[in-house]
Simulated assay, not measured.
Amino acid sequence: MSVTILFLGPLADLAGATEREVDAPVDWAGLIDAVGADVAGQLELERVNVACKGRVLADKRALMAQDGDEVALLPPVSGG
């Protein structure tokens, strides 16, 4: 039973990987523990979003990922 965490954009650089498998279930505290200090610091920022099962969460701290779910960590969009 696992959850896949996807690290996108610069968050992948901080994590040193594009994805990580962790034991299910995963809530907000479990996500913070699983991603490492550098990524966790970024997740605390309001401009970084979290998606679960393909949907961006209105309240990322309400995360509750179950077995087989995919959690994507979405950095802010930049560009001109």
Rank of each mutant, 00 (worst) to 15 (best):
A40L: 09
G79S: 12
R47D: 06
A40Q: 07
W28L: 08
V22K: 00
V35P: 00
I5H: 00
L74P: 02
A40G: 14
K60Q: 07
W28G: 03
G36D: 03
L11A: 06
S2F: 09
I32D: 00
T18D: 09
G16C: 07
E46M: 14
P10G: 06
P10R: 14
R61E: 07
V39F: 04
V35L: 06
A15F: 04
D59L: 02
V50G: 00
V48R: 03
L8C: 06
I32P: 00
G41L: 00
D33M: 11
S78V: 09
R47F: 02
E70A: 13
R20A: 13
S78G: 13
G16K: 11
L57E: 04
R55D: 09
P25W: 04
D23A: 15
A12H: 12
S2W: 11
V35T: 11
V48L: 12
K60W: 04
Q66N: 11
R47M: 05
D67R: 07
A37L: 12
A51I: 05
L43D: 08
E46V: 15
A65I: 05
L74A: 01
S2D: 14
D23R: 15
P75W: 01
P25V: 12
D23G: 14
L11W: 05
G68M: 01
R55Y: 04
P25Y: 12
D59F: 02
A34G: 09
E70W: 00
D23Y: 10
V22W: 06
A58V: 15
A34V: 07
R20S: 12
A15C: 08
D13G: 08
A37S: 14
L45M: 13
A15I: 12
V48N: 13
E44Y: 00
N49K: 15
E19F: 04
A58Y: 05
E19A: 14
A34P: 03
A34N: 07
R61T: 15
A51M: 04
A62W: 07
Q66H: 08
R61H: 09
N49Q: 15
A65V: 11
V56R: 06
V48A: 08
K60G: 03
S2V: 12
E21P: 05
D69M: 10
V48S: 05
A51K: 03
G16H: 13
S2K: 08
L31R: 00
A72V: 05
M64A: 09
V3K: 04
V56E: 08
P25H: 11
V48C: 13
V39S: 01
L14W: 07
Q42T: 12
L73R: 02
R55A: 14
E70I: 12
I5T: 01
L43F: 13
A29V: 13
L57Q: 07
R20Y: 09
R61Y: 01
D59G: 04
A40S: 14
V39A: 02
L14S: 11
E19Q: 15
D13A: 04
